[in-house]
Protein backbone atom coordinates (compact mmCIF):
# COMPACT_ATOMS: atom_id res chain seq x y z
CA UNK A 1 0.00 0.00 0.00
CA UNK A 2 1.31 3.40 -0.98
CA UNK A 3 0.44 6.51 1.00
CA UNK A 4 -2.09 8.60 -0.93
CA UNK A 5 -0.35 11.74 0.22
CA UNK A 6 3.41 11.15 -0.04
CA UNK A 7 3.56 7.78 -1.85
CA UNK A 8 5.67 6.09 0.85
CA UNK A 9 4.94 2.40 1.41
CA UNK A 10 2.71 2.31 4.50
CA UNK A 11 3.09 -1.48 4.89
CA UNK A 12 -0.40 -1.79 6.33
CA UNK A 13 0.01 0.52 9.29
CA UNK A 14 -2.87 2.86 10.12
CA UNK A 15 -0.78 5.98 9.60
CA UNK A 16 1.86 6.77 7.03
CA UNK A 17 5.27 6.39 8.71
CA UNK A 18 6.66 9.30 6.70
CA UNK A 19 4.06 12.05 6.53
CA UNK A 20 1.84 10.87 9.40
CA UNK A 21 -1.38 11.09 7.41
CA UNK A 22 -4.10 8.52 7.99
CA UNK A 23 -3.49 5.63 5.60
CA UNK A 24 -5.52 3.23 3.52
CA UNK A 25 -5.78 -0.32 4.83
CA UNK A 26 -5.28 -3.12 2.30
CA UNK A 27 -8.58 -4.88 1.60
CA UNK A 28 -8.95 -8.12 3.55
CA UNK A 29 -6.74 -7.11 6.49
CA UNK A 30 -7.57 -9.68 9.18
CA UNK A 31 -9.03 -8.72 12.52
CA UNK A 32 -5.88 -10.03 14.17
CA UNK A 33 -3.62 -7.94 11.92
CA UNK A 34 -5.48 -4.75 12.87
CA UNK A 35 -4.29 -5.33 16.43
CA UNK A 36 -0.88 -6.65 15.39
CA UNK A 37 -1.73 -10.03 16.85
CA UNK A 38 -0.73 -13.51 15.63
CA UNK A 39 -3.49 -15.83 14.40
CA UNK A 40 -4.09 -17.50 17.73
CA UNK A 41 -7.02 -18.12 20.01
CA UNK A 42 -5.52 -16.77 23.21
CA UNK A 43 -5.90 -13.01 23.42
CA UNK A 44 -5.11 -10.80 26.40
CA UNK A 45 -8.49 -9.05 26.54
CA UNK A 46 -7.56 -6.18 28.88
CA UNK A 47 -4.57 -5.42 26.64
CA UNK A 48 -6.87 -5.62 23.61
CA UNK A 49 -9.26 -3.16 25.21
CA UNK A 50 -6.42 -0.76 25.94
CA UNK A 51 -5.14 -1.02 22.38
CA UNK A 52 -8.67 -0.47 21.07
CA UNK A 53 -9.00 2.72 23.09
CA UNK A 54 -5.64 4.00 21.92
CA UNK A 55 -6.37 3.26 18.27
CA UNK A 56 -9.85 4.77 18.58
CA UNK A 57 -8.43 7.96 20.03
CA UNK A 58 -6.31 8.37 16.92
CA UNK A 59 -8.57 7.00 14.19
CA UNK A 60 -12.10 8.02 15.14
CA UNK A 61 -14.03 10.37 12.80
CA UNK A 62 -14.26 12.87 15.67
CA UNK A 63 -10.53 13.37 15.27
CA UNK A 64 -11.08 14.32 11.64
CA UNK A 65 -14.21 16.45 12.01
CA UNK A 66 -12.45 19.45 10.47
CA UNK A 67 -10.16 17.51 8.10
CA UNK A 68 -10.28 17.01 4.34
CA UNK A 69 -12.91 14.76 2.76
CA UNK A 70 -10.32 12.10 1.86
CA UNK A 71 -9.07 11.83 5.43
CA UNK A 72 -12.59 11.78 6.79
CA UNK A 73 -13.45 8.87 4.51
CA UNK A 74 -10.33 6.92 5.53
CA UNK A 75 -11.05 7.58 9.19
CA UNK A 76 -14.57 6.24 8.72
CA UNK A 77 -13.30 3.12 6.95
CA UNK A 78 -10.54 2.41 9.42
CA UNK A 79 -12.73 2.96 12.46
CA UNK A 80 -15.45 0.75 10.98
CA UNK A 81 -12.89 -2.05 10.51
CA UNK A 82 -11.43 -1.45 13.96
CA UNK A 83 -14.85 -1.70 15.63
CA UNK A 84 -15.63 -4.93 13.78
CA UNK A 85 -12.28 -6.44 14.70
CA UNK A 86 -12.64 -5.44 18.34
CA UNK A 87 -16.14 -6.85 18.61
CA UNK A 88 -14.99 -10.16 17.12
CA UNK A 89 -11.81 -10.64 19.11
CA UNK A 90 -13.07 -9.42 22.46
CA UNK A 91 -15.69 -12.13 22.74
CA UNK A 92 -14.44 -15.77 23.04
CA UNK A 93 -17.21 -17.37 20.99
CA UNK A 94 -16.99 -14.86 18.14
CA UNK A 95 -13.22 -15.17 18.19
CA UNK A 96 -13.43 -18.97 17.90
CA UNK A 97 -15.86 -18.79 14.95
CA UNK A 98 -13.63 -16.26 13.23
CA UNK A 99 -10.52 -18.42 13.69
CA UNK A 100 -12.33 -21.45 12.35
CA UNK A 101 -13.19 -19.38 9.30
CA UNK A 102 -9.48 -18.69 8.86
CA UNK A 103 -9.05 -22.47 8.70
CA UNK A 104 -11.55 -22.61 5.87
CA UNK A 105 -14.83 -23.44 7.60
CA UNK A 106 -17.30 -20.58 7.58
CA UNK A 107 -20.21 -21.58 9.76
CA UNK A 108 -21.96 -18.32 8.95
CA UNK A 109 -22.40 -19.19 5.30
CA UNK A 110 -23.96 -22.57 4.88
CA UNK A 111 -24.88 -22.01 1.27
CA UNK A 112 -21.26 -22.75 0.41
CA UNK A 113 -21.98 -26.35 1.30
CA UNK A 114 -19.93 -26.60 4.46
CA UNK A 115 -20.85 -28.65 7.40
CA UNK A 116 -24.33 -29.82 7.90
CA UNK A 117 -23.24 -33.28 8.97
CA UNK A 118 -23.99 -33.00 12.67
CA UNK A 119 -24.59 -36.45 14.21
CA UNK A 120 -28.23 -37.55 13.98
CA UNK A 121 -28.42 -38.21 17.74
CA UNK A 122 -27.35 -34.68 18.48
CA UNK A 123 -29.98 -33.17 16.21
CA UNK A 124 -32.61 -35.39 17.78
CA UNK A 125 -31.56 -34.11 21.17
CA UNK A 126 -31.77 -30.51 20.00
CA UNK A 127 -35.24 -31.11 18.61
CA UNK A 128 -36.33 -32.68 21.93
CA UNK A 129 -34.88 -29.73 23.82
CA UNK A 130 -36.65 -27.24 21.60
CA UNK A 131 -39.92 -29.13 21.92
CA UNK A 132 -39.66 -29.21 25.72
CA UNK A 133 -38.95 -25.49 25.69
CA UNK A 134 -41.94 -24.92 23.47
CA UNK A 135 -44.10 -26.80 25.99
CA UNK A 136 -42.69 -24.74 28.87
CA UNK A 137 -43.38 -21.55 26.92
CA UNK A 138 -46.93 -22.62 26.14
CA UNK A 139 -47.47 -23.35 29.85
CA UNK A 140 -45.80 -19.99 30.73
CA UNK A 141 -43.47 -22.00 32.95
CA UNK A 142 -40.55 -19.60 33.32
CA UNK A 143 -39.09 -21.68 36.13
CA UNK A 144 -38.80 -24.74 33.92
CA UNK A 145 -37.34 -22.75 31.02
CA UNK A 146 -34.68 -21.28 33.31
CA UNK A 147 -33.80 -24.71 34.62
CA UNK A 148 -33.30 -25.96 31.09
CA UNK A 149 -31.25 -22.90 30.25
CA UNK A 150 -28.86 -23.51 33.16
CA UNK A 151 -28.24 -27.02 31.92
CA UNK A 152 -27.80 -25.96 28.28
CA UNK A 153 -25.46 -23.13 29.28
CA UNK A 154 -23.15 -25.63 30.97
CA UNK A 155 -23.13 -27.77 27.84
CA UNK A 156 -22.48 -24.73 25.68
CA UNK A 157 -19.43 -23.88 27.77
CA UNK A 158 -18.13 -27.44 27.53
CA UNK A 159 -18.55 -27.44 23.74
CA UNK A 160 -16.70 -24.14 23.47
CA UNK A 161 -13.84 -25.47 25.59
CA UNK A 162 -13.60 -28.47 23.29
CA UNK A 163 -13.50 -26.22 20.21
CA UNK A 164 -10.87 -23.99 21.78
CA UNK A 165 -8.66 -26.99 22.55
CA UNK A 166 -8.85 -27.98 18.90
CA UNK A 167 -8.09 -24.45 17.73
CA UNK A 168 -5.05 -24.34 20.00
CA UNK A 169 -3.78 -27.63 18.63
CA UNK A 170 -4.28 -26.27 15.11
CA UNK A 171 -1.90 -23.45 15.93
CA UNK A 172 0.82 -26.11 16.21
CA UNK A 173 -0.28 -28.22 13.25
CA UNK A 174 -2.40 -26.07 10.92
CA UNK A 175 -3.10 -28.77 8.32
CA UNK A 176 -4.72 -31.26 10.69
CA UNK A 177 -8.04 -31.88 8.87
CA UNK A 178 -9.46 -33.99 11.68
CA UNK A 179 -8.91 -31.19 14.17
CA UNK A 180 -10.69 -28.72 11.87
CA UNK A 181 -13.64 -31.09 11.66
CA UNK A 182 -13.73 -31.58 15.42
CA UNK A 183 -13.54 -27.87 15.99
CA UNK A 184 -16.35 -27.21 13.55
CA UNK A 185 -18.56 -29.88 15.14
CA UNK A 186 -17.94 -28.46 18.57
CA UNK A 187 -18.67 -24.92 17.40
CA UNK A 188 -21.76 -26.24 15.62
CA UNK A 189 -23.00 -27.48 18.99
CA UNK A 190 -22.17 -24.11 20.50
CA UNK A 191 -24.37 -22.52 17.85
CA UNK A 192 -27.35 -24.81 18.53
CA UNK A 193 -27.08 -24.26 22.27
CA UNK A 194 -26.72 -20.50 21.82
CA UNK A 195 -29.85 -20.47 19.70
CA UNK A 196 -31.69 -22.34 22.43
CA UNK A 197 -30.52 -19.85 25.05
CA UNK A 198 -31.63 -16.95 22.87
CA UNK A 199 -35.10 -18.46 22.76
CA UNK A 200 -35.17 -18.68 26.55
CA UNK A 201 -34.05 -15.05 26.79
CA UNK A 202 -36.76 -13.92 24.42
CA UNK A 203 -39.29 -15.85 26.47
CA UNK A 204 -38.01 -14.32 29.72
CA UNK A 205 -38.23 -10.85 28.28
CA UNK A 206 -41.75 -11.44 27.08
CA UNK A 207 -42.80 -12.97 30.39
CA UNK A 208 -41.37 -10.06 32.39
CA UNK A 209 -42.80 -7.23 30.33
Amino acid sequence: MKCWNCETDTSGSPFCPTCGKIAERPAGTSHFAIFDLPLAYDVDVPALEKQFRELSLRLHPDRFAQAEAKERRLSLEQTTALNEAYKTLREPTRRAFYLLKMYGVDLEREDTGTQKDMPFEFLEEVLDLRESLEDAMAAKDLEQARKMATDVEARRKAALTEAVDMLRSLERSPSDEAAVKKASHALGRVRYFTRFLEQVEAFEEEALS
Binding site: L107, E108, R109, E110, Q115, K116, M118, F120, F122, L123, E124, V126, L127, R130, S184, L187, G188, R191, Y192, F193, T194, R195, F196
Partner: peptide, 13 residues
Protein backbone atom coordinates in the same frame (compact mmCIF):
# COMPACT_ATOMS: atom_id res chain seq x y z
CA UNK B 1 -35.83 -36.90 8.24
CA UNK B 2 -33.95 -34.75 10.70
CA UNK B 3 -31.58 -32.00 9.59
CA UNK B 4 -29.90 -29.01 11.15
CA UNK B 5 -28.28 -25.75 10.15
CA UNK B 6 -25.33 -24.68 12.24
CA UNK B 7 -25.35 -21.28 10.54
CA UNK B 8 -28.31 -20.33 12.66
CA UNK B 9 -28.70 -23.26 15.06
CA UNK B 10 -32.03 -24.34 13.64
CA UNK B 11 -33.45 -27.84 13.33
CA UNK B 12 -36.03 -29.30 11.00
CA UNK B 13 -37.90 -32.61 11.23
Amino acid sequence: GLVGAPACGDVMR
